[in-house]
Write a protein that binds this DNA or RNA. Sequence first.
DNA 1: TGAATAGTGTCTTTGAGACATTATAAG
DNA 2: CTTATAATGTCTCAAAGACACTATTCA
Lengths: 265, 265
Amino acid sequence: MPYDPSAFPPFAVTVDLVVLTVRRQALCALVVRRGEPPHRGRWALPGGFVREREDLAAAAARELGEETGLRSREPGTEQPGVHLEQLATYGEPDRDPRMRVVSVAHLVLAPDLPAPVAGGDAGSARWAPVADLLPTGPPPGPDASEGAGRPGAVGDPGVPRGPLAFDHDRILADGVERARSKLEYSSLATAFCPPEFTVGELRRVYEVVWGVALDPRNFHRKVTGTPGFLVPSGGTTTRQGGRPAQLFRAGGATLLNPPMLRPEA
Amino acid sequence: MPYDPSAFPPFAVTVDLVVLTVRRQALCALVVRRGEPPHRGRWALPGGFVREREDLAAAAARELGEETGLRSREPGTEQPGVHLEQLATYGEPDRDPRMRVVSVAHLVLAPDLPAPVAGGDAGSARWAPVADLLPTGPPPGPDASEGAGRPGAVGDPGVPRGPLAFDHDRILADGVERARSKLEYSSLATAFCPPEFTVGELRRVYEVVWGVALDPRNFHRKVTGTPGFLVPSGGTTTRQGGRPAQLFRAGGATLLNPPMLRPEA
DNA sequence: TGAATAGTGTCTTTGAGACATTATAAG
DNA sequence: CTTATAATGTCTCAAAGACACTATTCA
């Protein structure tokens, strides 16, 4: 009997956020420290209840603003900024031991922020390398030498480590995989970059997110040859050392054709 | 304040199904006729409430069985059959005028069924060409000559036409687009085929779903050359007329590498 | 016989990958 | 000077697209 409004089981609906950025040559996710049981002391993805008359995407954008001060770019608007999209929904009956909670996870891609976590009512929000949070994180980059495993979780409030609370390990893994595959066939890598960036900085985004090394020359030829991907902004910069690099902005294209395929293992 | 279980707005959670198949050279979706207001007399996607202690995927599989008698293939199992995956979640505050309903839509790909809609407590379930349901349906195939628009909706109980009830037009459009893009980089086209099929039948699936004509010779070379996509089953058939065609089963591969890219317009 | 579909082969073009070379900065 | 990064060019190979040709059935 579809849509009988008289008798239905009540659910709580939340949004959880997988907020990813690239900082210090590592793919990082935003996590908050839980101060209440269950999973007290564990790290978790930011999130919260959807309000009475609030759209799902609006709830995700609101939570994002509360945790980071970021304003999201709704899909459709053109100005550069933070990217927000729905990821997936998680609703196993016992994923929260207290009650039936269905969580609509969203994926956020953001550039490295000058102020890591500004304001926010969750005071303990931190950026943490995905490799430290997930048992099977991204393969370490060319010069990365990450720690071995992920021993404790509840002890040290300083360095966020997995496993995360609830089913957030799986949500984070799904978000990371979504981000990795979206770099292949969309221009979303620019969401990790500041408004103006060089080809080398864009390449480092791909290398960090995919965990591989890319040929700088082929990469340059590929991205500058894809129409609508990059627009020269006129200036140059030397902030990376070496010969001054041309600065670009994100172009209007959203889909990459042909795609940028990940090298296989 | 994330996860405060004491005060939260209550939601109803449903699953809606986009069930797609290929019949009579057209991409078709399963729709049910609404017998109750709101949208009485309009066609809608099958769906229903998630039960008290039921997983989302289990609810989708249950609804699918109730509407079609089909058993779904959970992601992970290997035997051929119906494919089911989560599509997206729709939760605008006023998408259902009666109450706050969050719907977790699922996508089902099924082979053409001998009994179009067997059993089912929704007696009015029907297959309808997607082109008749959506204002911007798939481009008509090589020899298709579909009707022009979609005039009425409530009048004729025989031929399902859009617009669908609630926001199901958008859900269906999202499901169709997901199916189209999944044919590119996965082997899911075989989910539209019977257990044994020919290369020509598989090609017709691609042509109908994408709404384009494909070169039979290049298609043959491509799919038989992709390792793990097709496994010869030994037999041949002449059910299409002409020279007998080799029969295949779906191979173990799920991801197509390199992908089968859609021809551009 | 002709019409229809299946299957193989050939040629061309496009694009990815490997790698050489030059350009321009900092120390 | 050396070193680091940027940018362009060249060669090779893999794969897609266009299309000729043969094979096998049915009417």
